[in-house]
Design a protein around this nucleic acid. Structure first.
Lengths: 332, 332
DNA sequence: TTGAAAGCGCTAACAT
DNA sequence: ATGTTAGCGCTTTCAA
C-alpha cells in the first residue's frame, strides 16, 4: 500500500528509530544520515501516518470545537480566532455543530473524546447538568468560549456582558431617555438572561427609572422575529423612545420596523446594541454598538487551551476580555 | 490509565474480539453475551479509542475540509451544509482555513492526508498546478465545492454562474438599461473571471451593447472597497444607470455610495447581485438577487464525497445545482 | 457463537 | 549517534 517508516528505514539502511528521529526533528542524528533519510523520504513520497503516531504517543495534536452553529457569523468569527491560534501551535480542529441541543452536545463531547482530541473548546447557550457531568469524565482540558459557567470551575473566556449592557443603557439614559426598551435574544441563553438583561435593569434602577414589563421583549435572535416584535412596541400606548437590542441582527429588525412605520433614527428613536457582525456598519444609519471581540474570544480561548494541554500553571482560568463602545449614527 | 477493550473483555469473561463485535454491532453475538458485555462497558465507562480503531481498520470516519476563511458567511454557510451531511453519515470534520494562499493549501492537503482523512472537500479561488499535483498523490477522494476546475477531472459541485450572471444582466437590459456596470469581486477568483464576468459580457453582446472598460470595476470583495469604488463610477462623464454586483456585500457598498451621493434606488440606479448573505434582505431597499444555494452546495458536495469514499459508481461527478432569481426592491 | 493471534505504523524507553 | 524492542488499542482473519 502506502509507504511506511519501515520502507524508508530499509531504503536508507537505518532503523525506524532513526527515521522517526529525522521526521520529528530530533537533534541526535548525524547530518549525513539525516540527509540520506530525507532523500529517501522525498524519493519514496513518505508521509508520516498521524494516526499511528497518535496511538503510540497518545497525543493527536487535534482539538475539538463544539459550536452551536458555524453558519452564524458570531460563531464563524469566533471559530476563526480559535483556528488561527490552533494553527500557530500546530493543532488541527475537529469542528461540530450542536444546534444547542443538550443531547447532541453530550454525544459530540463523547464523540470527540473518543477521537482522542487533546483538548476541547465548547460553546453553548447554557450548560445542562448532563453536559457538566460528561465534561467531568473528560481526561483532557476543556475551555468554555463565550459561554457562561454557573458554579462549575471550568476555564472560561468572556467579556463582561453585564457591565457592557449597563454602559449601553447608561448611554441612552445620559441622552435623556426614560422610556428604554430592551429587545433581547432568547432567555434560554445564559448571557442574555443573567448578563445583558441584568445590566439593563441595573442601569435603569440606578437612574431611578422603574422597570416596565412591556418594554422587555424576547426574540429568537433572528432579524425576522425582531422585525415582527417591533409591532408590539409600536402598539403600546406609551412607546419607548429608545431601544437597547441584544445584537445587531435584532437591532436591524427593529430599525426596519421603525423605519417602515415612518419614524426616523436617531431623531424619533435611539438604538444601541451589541455588535456581532458587519451589519452594524453597513446599515443606515450605522448602529452605535458595544463591539464584541469575537475573534479574540476564540483566539484567547485556544491560547488558554494550549497552556492547559501543556500542563502549564495558569493563574486565572476565567479570562475577561475588554470590549469597547463604538458611537455611530443610531444614537445622538 | 483509561479503560480499554481488554479491560472490558476481562471483566466480562470474553475475548476482546467479542467486545469488538458488540461495540461494532456485529450480529454474531449471543444476546446474553451482548448484554453482559454492554453492562461491563457501561460500568467501566469504556469509550472506544477511535485512533486505535483507525489504525487497525484504516478508516478514520473523518473528512478534511479546506476552506479559504470560515469567518466569511459564504463559507460558513457552505460548511454547515457539509457538516450536516457528514453528521448524517457519521463522519467528523477537520476544518482548516487556507486564506487562499497556495502554499498553505498544499501544506493543509498534506497535513490532512497525514491525518488519514477518508476524503477531502476543497474550496478555493483558483487551483494552482502545485495543488493539482498534490491532489494527484492523494489516495482518498477529493471534491471541489464552489470551486472551478480547469482541465482537471476532479469531482465538483457548483451552480452555473455564467448563466446566472447572464440572466441577472439580461434583466437589467430588459428593464431598458444600456449603461450597465459590473462591479466584480477579485479576478483572481476563477468564478469571477471565467463565469460572472463572461456572463455579463455575453448578455451585453447579445443585446448589441458595446462593452465599456470604465464600466468594469474590480473590488477585493469587501464592503469598504466597494463603497470606495463607487466614486470611480460616480466620476464618469456618463455614469451607468444600473449595476450588476458580484455579491451582496459589494452591492451594499455600492448602494451606500449611491445613497450618500443623494441618488435613489431603483429610480436613479437599479442594482442586482449574487446573494451570499442575509444582507440582501435586511438592507433597504432590499436587493434583487441571484440566490446561491450555499448550504446545498456544501451538502451535495459531502453527499458526493460519501459515495466516492464508499467506492460507489457515480455517473456524473460534475454536479450543477439550480439557482433562482429573487426580485426585490433594487430593480423595477 | 466465540477466541487466539497477527498486525496497523508509529513512538519511546533502553541498549549499545 | 543509532538500533532493538515493546507496546499503543483496536480490527480482522482464521480456527475452533
Amino acid at each position: 500500500m502506502s509507504v511506511t517508516i519501515y520502507d524508508v528505514a530499509r531504503e536508507a539502511n537505518v532503523s525506524m528509530a532513526t527515521v522517526s528521529r529525522v521526521v520529528n526533528g530530533n537533534q541526535n542524528v548525524k547530518p549525513a544520515t539525516r540527509k540520506k533519510v530525507l532523500e529517501c523520504i522525498e524519493r519514496l513520497g513518505y508521509r508520516p501516518n498521524a494516526v499511528a503516531r497518535g496511538l503510540a504517543s497518545k497525543k493527536t495534536t487535534t482539538v475539538g470545537v463544539i459550536v452551536p452553529d458555524i453558519s452564524k457569523s458570531y460563531y464563524a468569527e469566533l471559530s476563526r480566532g480559535i483556528a488561527d491560534i490552533a494553527t500557530m501551535y500546530e493543532y488541527n480542529i475537529i469542528l461540530s455543530n450542536s444546534d444547542k441541543r443538550p443531547i447532541r452536545e453530550v454525544e459530540l463531547l463523547e464523540d470527540h473524546l473518543g477521537k482522542q482530541v487533546d483538548g476541547i473548546i465548547f460553546m453553548s447557550d447554557s450548560l445542562t447538568d448532563e453536559i457538566k457531568k460528561e465534561m467531568g469524565t473528560a481526561n483532557v482540558p476543556i475551555v468554555l468560549a463565550g459561554t457562561l459557567d454557573a458554579n462549575t470551575n471550568l476555564p472560561t473566556v468572556n467579556i463582561d456582558h453585564e457591565q457592557a449592557a449597563y454602559e449601553a443603557v447608561k448611554k441612552l439614559i445620559d441622552n435623556g431617555h426614560k422610556r428604554i426598551a430592551h429587545v433581547a435574544g432568547p432567555m434560554s441563553r445564559d448571557i442574555n438572561k443573567f448578563c445583558k438583561k441584568v445590566g439593563y435593569e441595573r442601569a435603569l434602577q440606578e437612574a431611578g427609572i422603574p422597570l416596565r414589563e412591556e418594554y422587555f421583549i424576547e426574540t429568537d435572535n433572528t432579524y425576522d422575529d425582531a422585525y415582527d416584535k417591533w409591532k408590539k412596541l409600536a402598539s403600546l400606548d406609551e412607546m419607548p423612545t429608545s431601544i437597547f437590542a441584544g445584537n445587531d441582527e435584532i437591532a436591524v429588525g427593529i430599525m426596519n420596523g421603525i423605519r417602515d412605520d415612518g419614524y426616523s433614527i436617531p431623531d424619533d428613536f435611539e438604538v444601541i446594541c451589541f455588535q456581532h457582525t458587519l451589519l452594524s456598519r453597513v446599515v443606515r444609519p450605522q448602529l452605535t454598538t458595544i463591539v464584541v471581540p469575537l475573534y479574540d474570544l476564540g483566539a484567547v480561548s485556544m491560547r488558554l487551551l494550549t497552556k492547559l494541554m501543556n500542563g502549564e500553571e495558569v493563574d486565572d482560568t476565567n479570562v475577561v476580555l475588554p470590549y469597547r463602545m463604538e458611537e455611530r449614527q443610531s444614537t445622538k
